[in-house]
Design a protein around this nucleic acid. Structure first.
Length: 114
DNA sequence: TGGGTGACGAGTC
DNA sequence: CGACTCGCCACCC
């Protein structure tokens, strides 16, 4: 994966987010070695909407806010997808965020990707 | 060629 | 606290 472009890296990590867990744009950016490009992660997720196997709804901002819900068909789709996985959402925000938060840099081994 | 635009995040006040 | 700035960089006019 070393030579894969930025988007590919984002997708690889996104595919590994466990069912019922969430992570943040910044956490992904940090893990793939682009710590200051969290914004690009969000941009990449936008292009992943078409990719069936990428759970873009499991990626929220650093506060657990569903900042990307607008990019899912319905205004509640993202929230519903999360709820269906057991992730509680209230006020566009993931409840118990720190408990369901999945940090790739802690759970994954960089050597397998970089 | 150049400028506006973000599914962000960290910092400042 | 909220409001604001700045760095980031692929894309789209």
């Amino acid at each position: 994966m070393g030579n894969e472009n930025f988007f590919e890296r984002v997708y690889v990590v996104a595919r590994l987010i466990p069912h019922g867990r969430v992570t943040s744009y910044g956490a992904i950016a940090k893990f793939i070695g682009a710590a200051r490009s969290a914004r690009m992660v969000g941009y990449a997720m936008n292009g992943s909407i078409d990719e069936e196997d990428i759970a873009a709804h499991r990626v929220v901002n650093r506060n657990g806010l569903l900042s990307g819900k607008a990019h899912f068909g319905g205004s509640r789709l993202m929230e519903q997808l999360l709820q269906s996985e057991g992730v509680e959402v209230e006020n566009n925000q993931v409840k118990n965020f720190q408990e369901v938060f999945w940090d790739p840099s802690l759970e994954l081994d960089r050597n397998d990707f970089l």
